[in-house]
């Protein structure tokens, strides 16, 4: 089972954090920090796996991928295949790429809820449910459509005040 998914930038700022077992926020923060501590000490071009027993308890590993300014991290236990997890990160990133057309860190910063939407289609309660990015895209598009439809009734656009800041 997948225990957690994290996306963070190379400065250690979290961009997405999803834990499939409930964790108090302080614990989450601590975990993210220790994962970053491990990742930033690793050189380029080394293997993508890290034993995570000391961070997440026995029988856990994490796999990460480094894209530009971002780390994508999946934490999982022995019920998952390491290489498959690596592929799954690829699926996730591919889907995001389709979603935002050439995804970059800013997209991820400003599309917090869409990130969750995409992730929820791929991983469900810690289990891999969908591995084809086109299927995920289909679902995400449908959901977005539905949201737009439900918002259309609203008279005031949601972010009319954005000029203020």
């Amino acid at each position: 089972m997948i225990r957690a998914v994290m996306v963070m930038n190379t400065q250690g700022k979290p961009r997405l954090a999803k834990f499939y077992d409930y964790m108090p926020v302080e614990k989450q923060q601590e975990l993210i920090r220790s994962v970053f501590g491990v990742l930033c000490s690793r050189a380029e071009n080394v293997s993508n796996f890290v034993e995570a027993n000391s961070i997440f308890g026995p029988d856990t590993q994490l796999v990460y991928k480094h894209y530009a300014t971002l780390y994508f991290v999946f934490v999982f236990d022995s019920s998952e295949n390491e290489l498959a997890m690596l592929d799954l990160i690829q699926v996730f990133v591919e889907t995001l790429d389709k979603c935002f057309r050439n995804v970059c860190e800013l997209d991820i910063v400003f599309n917090f809820s869409k990130m969750h939407m995409v992730l929820n289609e791929i991983i469900f309660g810690g289990q891999v449910l969908e591995t084809s990015s086109s299927e995920v895209m289909k679902a995400v598009e449908e959901i977005t459509k539905l949201e737009k439809a439900s918002n259309a009734i609203s008279l005031v656009p949601k972010s009319v005040s954005s000029w203020q800041s």
């Binding site: 910063v109 400003f110 917090f112 809820s113 005031v156 949601k158 972010s159 009319v160 005040s161 954005s162 203020q164 800041s165």
Partner: peptide
């Protein structure tokens, strides 16, 4: 009141400016 409410985007932008 929603007219003057910060949206999530506003919040994120504002945090980034700090």
């Amino acid at each position: 009141e929603s007219l003057f409410q910060r949206s999530l985007d506003d919040l994120i932008k504002a945090i980034r400016l700090q």
